[in-house]
Write a protein that binds this DNA or RNA. Structure first.
Lengths: 354, 354
DNA sequence: TTGTATGCGTTATCAC
DNA sequence: GTGATAACGCATACAA
């Protein structure tokens, strides 16, 4: 029966007091060099592991984190990260971790800046942020870096200022995976479309990476030149609707067998395919939001690639806590699994944990 | 700043001592009814939540759990649950949870009985077990039930004695999902084969459920009667090899377009398809074991359905701890996600967490 | 029936 | 440089 090793055990074995051991273990100085080495050696020998519970109990520090999140009311996609953040907060409450949420409008860069401004005005232990506005984000990264406040990015990766961690998906690989899914569903000659919907593609590097991954998949799996990949930037304007654009696309291109939507808006294409009775066309998109799930259930959408948005919020907060509370260091990039969701396994991914 | 609510706070507000509050909160009796009600009301008002850290620190109880696991050396599939058990043990060590592993030979029922016998001879707080031998398991369930020892089942569900929890996958639904995957990959007329390999199908209800799910998928998605589903029980014997059986099958059935292997032995079929150069046939199986991964990488196996075996061990131990240490009750069935694995998203599922 | 005192392992503040 | 010691929130043995 190997009892747990306490500071007291080390102290007794080293013929010093617990205070001394504590100073050694925490590098607080004011301790003789020979004693230091002896204590360190014994701690090593006994394989001492601090009791985190006792530590959390006594330090009684509260770490206030900020979570800078897009408003779920504006885009329901962001509900899941928020849930994840709250789940982590609940788990970590007992360790003195608190999370303040700062919500911004995902369609308004100024709203992001205002929220980040508020964050910067508070004294915080760490920040979790979805930096969906590149330019607006940079200024704040700079501030936090200077102040030594660790920040974790999720959803969108901006490596410039070395965040403590990025959590999200590998955009390139997800496009590659989408290629596989469409390819598997259509082995005959075919044209596939990469559809960007209502997005400023030029300024969204992750969309470009998704497209690149998709194209590279076919570049690597098409020795006989049977597949063509088109890219289409669909945005409604005063002069035309998205449906009209698609009509034109299908008119010009006869052999379209599959569409890969790079955003969470696959339902827009599904709408169209459903109306036009184009049941034979495979459709792959992202994210388990209600509008998509409707068409997944219908069979109009074949697969959704899930970015585990809840997990992103959850692990983001956990990464900050690991760093601040537990002094653990972890990999600067955490890619969450690229879950393949169909109507048949959907049930296990909604409302579940982590 | 809402400070944390302690027992002491309740005590002060109710004009009693902490001891009294403690007795009320733990229903230990020996307390006046009016005081009891007052304390309860105030605790409610203040939204008192016990500090689990402090509790764990003071109770200092050690809970010894038994994990009855098949030997990974005999079948590498079982390495993952073992890893999951050990991961959970590590996390829960600080709460006084210890896990003793009892390893048995997954091909030898007697070995299981011997291991379970050892478990029964020890005094334990709870048991996690993969009851892969139905008959041999029942006797021990009975014992544990009588002794009031909670036990959690994983991998194989045997509801007879009401375990604290079953953790695993939904066999039926996984077969249904396999149907979808093969169907999506082949929309033209086709014959599909459900292959059971080296298994005593009659005594393996989960294999039957998988097959049923698969058949039901096509029953529901084949209005024009384009698909045929065959079931094939492949076992090598003195008179024939599995390859010979398959040769005969392909001879008799011309239109085979896909095979669903109900066990982790998809690599056996992959071997065959690879040798016979049958590249056009879709192949879906189970489990991320090395032999399968080889053919997944090859492209011979298209999809593997993952039962998250590591998660089964992990969550199994956690379920016991939640019950014993934290007094949480949870759902008696926890289905883990049916992960769809391809070559392209495999990397996120191996060596990762939970 | 109720209140008080002690200790869990750690940190932090003293006095020496 | 070092060693006592109080405190964190809770459970419990024991005194009243």
């Amino acid at each position: 029966m190997d009892r747990i090793v306490r500071i007291k055990d080390i102290a007794e074995k080293a013929n010093v007091s617990t205070g001394t051991v504590d100073r050694v273990l925490h590098d607080r100085g004011r301790v003789a060099e020979d004693v230091r080495r002896r204590v360190l050696r014994i701690a090593e020998e006994l394989n001492y592991k601090p009791n985190l519970l006792a530590r959390a109990l006594v330090t009684n520090k509260t770490y206030t984190l900020a979570a800078l999140l897009p408003d779920p009311a504006a885009d329901s996609y962001w509900q899941a990260p928020k849930d994840g953040v709250e789940k982590a907060e609940n788990e970590l409450k007992q360790y003195g971790v608190r999370v303040e949420q700062y919500i911004f409008d995902p369609f308004d860069p100024d709203s992001f800046s205002r929220a980040a401004e508020k964050v910067a005005a508070t004294t915080l232990a760490g920040v979790l942020v979805a930096p969906i506005f590149y330019r607006q984000s940079l200024a704040f990264f700079n501030t936090w870096k200077r102040q030594g406040i660790p920040f974790v990015l999720f959803n969108t990766h901006i490596p410039d200022y070395e965040p403590l961690m990025y959590i999200g998906q590998d955009s390139y690989q997800s496009g590659f995976l989408a290629g596989k899914l469409l390819h598997y569903g259509c082995k005959a000659e075919a044209t596939f479309v990469v559809a960007h919907i209502e997005e400023d593609v030029e300024n969204s590097s992750h969309l470009i990476r998704k497209e690149q991954g998709f194209k590279d998949y076919f570049a690597q799996h098409d020795p006989d030149g049977r597949y063509r990949v088109l890219s289409s930037d669909l945005r409604r304007s005063e002069s035309h609707t998205i449906a009209q654009q698609l009509d034109r696309l299908f008119q010009e291109e006869a052999g379209i067998k599959g569409i890969f939507v790079t955003t969470s808006k696959a339902s827009v294409i599904a709408d169209y395919l459903h109306q036009r009775q184009k049941g034979q066309i495979s459709l792959v998109g992202y994210d388990l939001i209600a509008r998509n799930l409707h068409y997944l259930d219908n069979g109009v959408i074949d697969f959704l690639i899930n970015q585990n948005p809840k997990g992103q919020g959850y692990w983001g907060i956990h990464a900050l806590a690991d760093h601040l509370v537990f002094g653990k260091k972890s990999n600067p990039i955490k890619y969450l699994p690229l879950d393949i969701i169909t109507k048949e396994n959907l049930q296990y991914y909604i409302g579940a944990d982590s």
